[in-house]
């Protein structure tokens, strides 16, 4: 991918070489690009033809070529589906909560870690914080279930201390959403922090020195130097995160949800999995997936546009 840059930094001495010179000169770089390109073509572009299933009454045994074309009928079916709008609403709601509370969390933690004096302590905290990232949702779900259990969970003991009746929070729609967001933050907090910590090292130390001379305290330094210093990284990650808005956490919700909270926790991805793949409604699943992606594309372009408006760099 560096090729592009090299090509831009064209040197004047190239006239003497052959017509093919730009490519020939960077041939090694192009060669290195090849596997990446192949990956995209084979795994990302070629499968794109599968989208046509969304416009067919797809029969798995007749295949794409012989299945009947039905135009937008499948999409009409999707939008007419009784729960579709509820599911879409859930997807957006859970995702917005996750962004609202989950997005600033690693920034705050990174700022806090950045202020730590003891390097070893800092490293330990950092490592411990990002460990949950490597635990699968199935395991986390088991942990949550064990903690939340009103009959033998840790939480039931806490309830008893306060003389309260233990409740099954996982069956409570409001509490369930909070658990979803909280466990998501817990899992990926440390991982997100790494990027911000890396960005923080880029902030010019002389600025802090100057601020100290001018009498700025820690708060002022953070507000006027650190945050503006990593602003472009924050905006960039926010744009990416908004692109993932339709992705409210498939695995997590699939393993954690239950009948009592299904109405507030069924999201597009779990719905596609259950209704589309498990019950074999492939056309329906593809149509929902395509809708999902179209929205995601609009969101990411919208976020990009807004960030440009505010004078940030954005993605491109």
């Amino acid at each position: 991918m560096e090729t592009v840059q090299t090509y831009k930094r064209e040197e004047p001495a190239t006239k003497r070489l052959s017509r093919l010179h730009p490519i020939y000169k960077d041939r090694h770089l192009y060669l290195m690009l090849l596997p990446g390109l192949l990956f995209f073509i084979v795994f990302k572009y070629v499968p794109l033809y599968g989208i046509v299933i969304a416009f067919q009454d797809y029969d798995i045994f007749r295949g794409i070529r012989e299945s009947e074309w039905v135009g937008w009928d499948i999409f009409k079916e999707v939008f007419a589906y009784s729960d579709f709008w509820v599911i879409l609403g859930n997807t957006l709601q859970i995702s917005v909560y996750k962004i609202l509370f989950g997005f600033p969390a690693p920034i705050v933690v990174a700022l806090l870690l950045n202020e730590l004096g003891n390097r070893y302590f800092k490293k330990y905290v950092q490592t411990i914080l990002y460990l949950p990232h490597f635990i699968s949702w199935v395991v986390i779900s088991g942990i949550v279930l064990t903690i939340m259990s009103p009959t033998n969970g840790v939480l039931s003991i806490v309830y008893e201390w306060f003389g309260m009746e233990p409740k099954n929070l996982l069956a409570d729609p409001t509490a369930f959403r909070i658990i979803l967001v909280a466990s998501d933050i817990w899992k990926d907090l440390g991982w997100g922090t790494i990027i911000y910590l890396a960005a923080l090292t880029q902030v010019d130390p002389s600025l802090y020195e100057a601020a100290t001379v001018d009498g700025a305290g820690k708060w002022k330094q953070t507000w006027h130097i650190t945050l503006p210093g990593i602003r472009n990284v924050i905006v960039l990650l926010l744009i990416l995160r908004i692109g993932l808005l339709m992705n409210a956490g498939f695995e997590q919700i699939l393993v954690m949800q239950n009948s009592a909270v299904l109405e507030v926790s069924e999201i597009l991805d779990t719905f596609v999995f259950k209704f589309g793949l498990q019950q074999g409604n492939y056309s329906f699943a593809t149509a929902v997936g395509l809708f999902n992606s179209a929205i995601a594309l609009i969101l990411i372009l919208g976020a990009q546009w807004i960030s440009k408006k505010f004078g940030e760099e954005g993605l491109m």
């Binding site: 995209f40 299933i53 589309g276 699943a285 395509l290 594309l297």
Partner: peptide, 20 residues
């Protein structure tokens, strides 16, 4: 285009069981 493609590719894997 690449972004659009990867978005769409991500989607297609939902339903396109044949190829992916």
């Amino acid at each position: 285009v690449a972004i659009a493609a990867s978005v769409l590719a991500g989607c297609s894997s939902n339903g396109n069981s044949e190829s992916s």
